[in-house]
Design a binder for these strands. Structure first.
Lengths: 210, 210
DNA sequence: GTCTATACGAAGATAGAC
DNA sequence: GTCTATCTTCGTATAGAC
């Protein structure tokens, strides 16, 4: 006996689709309301489902939050490493360092989620572990880029690569934080300015040492 | 007719005392649990009172949170400006910049509260305003210190004071964030190291320009 | 002003139908 | 796997005694 209709989606695909929709909705709602104030009802509704669908796909609210964290971090890391493989000019490298022309965390939603995750991590070590890996990956990415820039400029870095990478990442994070609090005084491209200043001064220091 | 007992505390003092105790307890509990998960019951109990005392002194949970914010920020600013008045040596200035030998936000509770406030500020503009004032005061403090260091060293700053102050504050914040996430790899005194590197490289840059 | 008791709403979680 | 209905917990806020 033949099946009367050929479903466009297999069962597995349908499940994945629901899960993906829920994760996407969760991303919006968690960013908007924060973990504690985000209602599973809102999330489900935004995804076009009912609360039951949430519990069919995730054990509970925390499980959904952690699944989103994994999903989000993986995308962020992929995004970063994808850019590393190219062989850029130094200026392109500097531009790429801060992600498509502005601080990566100039985007409000992106920044809100990151802070939400970081705050959660401060109280939950297992989440801190994942963010730690993310930060290390980012610093590796920054570090290799810094080295490429230095090599292209023919200078010898006046400090360990790791220290400079840490400095750059801390700057990106700190400036995003301050810019979101005081956008009138602190534009997000202060990060680019800071990188430029840093590049110039480190170059001057390297020259002075040789 | 004479009063039989002389109360150690006047009524007004007693009120202030209760209020202070509640604020202190709130500081602990908000830092520990976060705004949403902090129960007024816990706060009152920790202060040695019942929930009624909270509502006698504050309109509601948010009001208590905002009162704590004001209280906390004022203490932080007082703390900072108090250090500015001294006439330090350059090295003392550098040390003072990051607060008593380590990053000011190496302290877990202090950092948790700050992040809690910042996250709240991202969703509530009136709180962002207060943090903005705090950040500006801090940058002014950093800026005047940077100028004093430069003057003592006899160098001309190779960038606007404001930019350098922003850079220092962003570094302090960013490094505290990363250190709390990955304490094994990133010690809190990375901030001191970063300041030292920054000082050296900016000095080299200033020398190269003159 | 502070306490106890209570009302009330919100939201996470579960059970059972489809 | 998804939905609706229900249970339950929790915490804010209020009312009234002291």
């Amino acid at each position: 006996m033949e099946r009367s209709t050929l479903p466009r989606l297999t069962r597995a695909e349908s499940v994945q689709r629901t899960r993906a929709a829920l994760l996407s909705a969760a991303e919006d709602v968690f960013a908007d309301k924060g973990f504690a104030d985000a209602a599973l009802d809102d999330i489900a509704e935004r995804a076009g489902f009912s609360r039951g669908a949430v519990y069919a796909n995730f054990a509970n609210k925390t499980d959904l939050f952690l699944a989103l964290l994994d999903n989000w971090l993986q995308r962020e890391i992929d995004n970063g490493t994808r850019l590393t493989d190219s062989d850029n000019t130094p200026q392109q490298d500097i531009d790429a360092l801060d992600g498509q022309g502005g601080n990566r965390f100039a985007d409000r939603k992106r920044f809100l989620l990151l802070i939400e995750f970081r705050l959660y991590a401060l109280r939950h070590p297992e989440v801190a572990d994942r963010l730690r890996d993310y930060d290390r990956a980012t610093m590796d990415w920054f570090g290799s880029t810094v080295e490429r820039v230095a090599e292209a400029s023919g200078i010898r870095l006046p400090a360990p690569t790791e220290q400079i990478a840490l400095l750059v990442l801390a700057l990106e994070h700190g400036i995003a934080t301050l810019a979101h609090t005081d956008p009138e005084r602190i534009p997000h491209d202060s990060f680019l300015d800071a990188l430029t200043l840093l590049n110039r001064s480190l170059t001057a220091m390297a020259a002075a040492e040789s």
